[in-house]
Design a protein around this nucleic acid. Structure first.
Lengths: 250, 250
DNA sequence: CGGTGTCTTGAATACCATCAAGTCTTGTGG
DNA sequence: CCACAAGACTTGATGGTATTCAAGACACCG
């Protein structure tokens, strides 16, 4: 019906020689680790290891026993909870630079599962090592606390969305916050409101508490009214003002 | 129709000579503060002040500027978010011993409002003072982090409830978790599944993302089938197994 | 080239919201 | 202490939003 198939340039896959060139430097957990290593108390650098996992693979499951703390280097991942009836709730989309779970600093058994959406590279740090270094420097511990506060605030927002907002509003908010997070990482392509968008509609549905069918109908409506363009795994917000109005933001 | 008016003994209002007799000693934030004072690095005790607020009064609003961190001593309170259309989402019920918002340790502007449900007494601590003492002792900072992890886990559970569970399930889970939290504080009355229950149905509705009307119908159903007794601000879970089944717990 | 995953669209249905009326309780000022 | 007002709860009728069910189009991959 619509979906004009125009080939546009795509962001090249980011090479990953190390955190030094991480897109997320400056405001994420990744950055804190870099600082830890620069000011290493002993000469020994923080123990770490780079891992890769293919799209759609599980990185770890709830109740696994982990002795490491992962941080996303490239790609998109997701933290989610599976219910006994097979349904799933997505708690958070993980972007490059994000710590996967701060809870893992203190507790080896996560209560949530992590899945790769795209191909993902991530680094793992020894839990005890990382934790002790973080807490040995008071300013780093407080920076960690700030990130933590941030993640709690995001969770609270999602609670409000799911408890008190209608479906179009929820979807609009999700799209906007994702674009904003990528903007702050300089990961837009083309214009400032255009991004690589690897999510399937079932990801959106599981994140905002709807069914894939209903998400499809809402996105079609957004497209039909010219608010967004979404095809070939690329999302462009054509009319940010109208989308923000739908989302009751700003 | 039901509501058999039997007068039963009520828990006496707890006197509050200080944290030394706090019902929440041993596992809450309140307890951490007590420990801070015991092992005070200098002779000077942590600056604090006791305050009281009447039922249904606002303790503070989102975006207020606070230079203190409050902890509940007695009574029930609630953290919530108001939306522009007048609807409200409750994020958490605060019970004695709970820190009101750990975020306040780092950020003077809360993003949520706090309201007293019953008459409430709470203590306030100077933010900078409390934070510095917590982070000067690594073991305390880590204890704080554990409490923090706990509060994030609770938020994630609520996200799952609101996103993926039906109305009866949500209400059942709320009742069960409240009773459990009071059990762990030895605040049950009569039997182990009977508590003082000051919540109005609109509190329940705002917490689980439903309307008061629908909550009323669900509670009536729970009563009709003999799962709970709820009258005169007292809740008794008569059939914990059936309620847990409804809640898909355990 | 069949299989699987993804998306779309329409029809029927379920769940919860909204509206409305009435009872009962709680609080307040005379 | 009573009268009255406001708040809290109940119940039934009606409506809207989102789900479920179903069928088909399309792309991608082995």
């Amino acid at each position: 019906m619509n979906a004009v198939a125009v080939a546009r340039p795509r962001a090249a896959p980011v090479p990953h020689p190390g955190c030094g060139v991480c897109v997320a430097r400056g405001f994420t957990f990744c950055d804190m680790v870099a600082e830890l290593n620069k000011t290493a108390p002993r000469g020994r650098p923080l123990a770490q290891e780079v891992r890769k996992v293919a799209a759609r693979r599980t990185i770890f499951r709830a109740h696994d026993d982990l002795d490491y703390v992962p941080i996303i280097c490239s790609g998109w991942a997701v933290t989610s909870v599976m219910l006994s009836d097979g349904s799933r709730q997505i708690l958070h989309f993980l972007l490059p630079g994000d710590i996967v779970l701060s809870a893992l600093l203190f507790e080896p058994k996560p209560t949530v599962s992590i899945e790769a959406i795209t191909d993902v590279t991530y680094r793992v740090f020894n839990r005890v090592d990382l934790r002790e270094r973080l807490f040995s420097k008071a300013d780093l511990a407080e920076k960690l606390a700030v990130l933590w506060t941030e993640s709690k605030r995001r969770a609270d927002e999602l609670i409000v969305d799911l408890g008190r907002r209608g479906a179009p509003e929820r979807v609009a908010r999700l799209l906007l916050t994702l674009v904003e997070r990528l903007q702050s990482r300089d990961m837009t392509i083309g214009g400032p409101f255009e991004i690589d968008f690897p999510l399937r509609q079932h990801h959106i549905a599981d994140a905002v508490g709807l069914t894939p069918v209903h998400v499809s109908k809402l996105l079609s409506e957004f497209r039909r009214t010219g608010i967004i363009r979404l095809s070939e795994r690329t999302l462009a917000i054509l009319d940010p003002d109208r989308l923000r109005a739908l989302a009751k933001l700003r």
